[in-house]
């Protein structure tokens, strides 16, 4: 993961308030079209009727994100979503399956400062010590990632997939 910079001032508190106080899509349980990259997951014991994360995107919120503050280019297409994990939620090891573009960059942005028990692992690296609004770019957009909330407070991650070619 490459730290691009901190863009905390770009994150609107009203986004965080909305995500904190409103329900979203319970995935994978309530998202029939949702397909995890690895179709073998149910065979490994993961229950696709349970809830790994609560998902928010342009499809189920009024949040408008119209630009990426870490780039000056206005030509970049992107899609965003937020994963909310309440304590005890676990998100299995997957390669992200959102391939909307021929070329792809992925970004991960925590919406809170790091807390013990908040787990996001990129390949074999546990993300720690981050600050709200830190923008990390995946070194490899096909990398394995997984997450869990083994802490005491809600966990919020903002994710982007873009059509950049890097």
């Amino acid at each position: 993961m490459i730290l691009i910079g901190n863009y905390n001032s770009w994150i609107k508190q009203e986004w965080v308030d909305y995500l904190t106080n409103n329900d979203g899509l319970h995935i994978p349980r309530d998202f029939p079209p949702y397909k995890l990259e690895n179709s073998a997951l149910p065979e490994t014991g993961w229950d696709l009727k349970s809830v790994y994360s609560i998902l928010y995107s342009t499809d189920n919120t009024d949040i408008v994100i119209d630009h990426l503050p870490w780039t000056n280019s206005s030509d970049i297409k992107f899609y965003w979503w937020v994963n909310k994990l309440i304590p005890s939620m676990v998100y299995p090891k997957i390669r992200d399956s959102t391939y909307l573009y021929d070329t792809c960059c992925r970004y991960w942005i925590p919406l809170q400062d790091y807390e013990q028990g908040h787990i996001f692992v990129y390949e074999d690296t546990l993300m720690t010590g981050y600050k709200r609004g830190d923008v990390y770019m995946y070194t490899d957009p096909t990398a394995y990632v997984y997450a869990a909330n083994a802490g005491r407070n809600m966990l919020l991650h903002l994710n982007f997939t873009t059509n950049e070619n890097k």
């Binding site: 490994t44 014991g45 993961w46 304590p87 676990v90 028990g117 869990a148 083994a150 802490g151």
Partner: peptide
Amino acid sequence: MLPGMCMPW
């Protein structure tokens, strides 16, 4: 631990 199990901090 079966897949999906997790202990709290």
